[in-house]
Design a protein around this nucleic acid. Sequence first.
DNA 1: ATTACTAAAAGCCGAGTAG
DNA 2: TCTACTCGGCTTTTAGTAA
Lengths: 218, 218
Amino acid sequence: MLEKASKVDLIFFMLRNGGAAHAFKISTTELANEMGVSQQSSSRWLIELEKDGMIERTRGGIKLSRYCMARCRTLYWLLRTVFEAQKSVKIEGLVIRGVGDGRVYLSMPEYRRQLHKSLGFFPYEGTLNLTIAEPGKKTDLVATRGIEIDGFLKDGRTLGAAKCFRCTINGREKGAVIIPLRSHYGSDVVEIISQNNLRKKLGLRDGSRVTVDVDKGE
Amino acid sequence: MLEKASKVDLIFFMLRNGGAAHAFKISTTELANEMGVSQQSSSRWLIELEKDGMIERTRGGIKLSRYCMARCRTLYWLLRTVFEAQKSVKIEGLVIRGVGDGRVYLSMPEYRRQLHKSLGFFPYEGTLNLTIAEPGKKTDLVATRGIEIDGFLKDGRTLGAAKCFRCTINGREKGAVIIPLRSHYGSDVVEIISQNNLRKKLGLRDGSRVTVDVDKGE
DNA sequence: ATTACTAAAAGCCGAGTAG
DNA sequence: TCTACTCGGCTTTTAGTAA
């Protein structure tokens, strides 16, 4: 560690020493040595962590709280999607009406050229938008490389930079999930493009249930 | 997050948004909003993270460095041992001479009583010490609950608090790995106790190779 | 629009020390 | 011994602002 240790490192230290499983006895002086800070700071950190509900202190020692473990688990899930990427992911969602900005982009010749170059097809001028029940699956894609769409310059600004993942909709239509690189962080909406009008081809309307097999490769 | 975000959270934010896989374009103002700090702070954080070699900034955007990913992976391994605990772990090591403090504890009646109560046997008065090639396997045990040994009071101090894991040595002798709760953090030495003198029973001498099947249950 | 500098305010650290 | 308080000094933050 180049940087000075922090309260976060104290949590990780406890995790490494079983603080998740059982109360862990250590003096503030020893802890300070482990963390490379003063006894005063380690004492203060423990007080603050307890106040924040991250640890529990009893006469038996220190223990990571249930709340702390829940947050650690969330972090674990994130790291797992980063380091143990699956080859594909199945997303289920319901068709919703989009805001229409997808259609605007998809009608621009520069953008259509970019997509054709990267995906091998010129898309129908409209996106199929789905609300998904498991936003984690979009997060998973967001954290994956995917097929990069460079965007294009317009009035000195780069527009439309995005990434795509080839996918199969309802087991038969080919297309791609498209995720803009800017904006829309943490949304539970997935946008799909295809050579065809998916609503028509698959007989979909608002509220229809759709299954998408997404290929996480490039 | 109750606490104020830090540079560590900025790394996790980038991880969540694919910063591991590709350059990620975001203005310091947007980033500041995401992190709940001022634009000035997010700007300074990026400068400092770049100086520390955690991120790389190019005209394409921000990207997590190889070094940063290596550190994230270490954290991932830690969290995996915490959340995906295996039922058992196989440890290989070489017999070494111990410092003799194990023998001291193991000859104390109070301690012998504790161990009998928790493990069901009175141990031979000496530990079998092994150096192990994969210290991560000890870390794994340290982060697991195990069988708690309460220790005993002597002159107003609690001595000998430890945890144990039932194990089988070289496929036939039963015993337990014993890990003192205080001191010996991060060591690559594992201590084993058993009803019998393992050196004699298994014909071991310093340098002998030993395989230990450790039961991580209670 | 963007990034990053300056300077004052706010917050954190650790030596000293009490209980 | 231990934990945790105070307080001077250092570091980090943020408003203002330049480029």
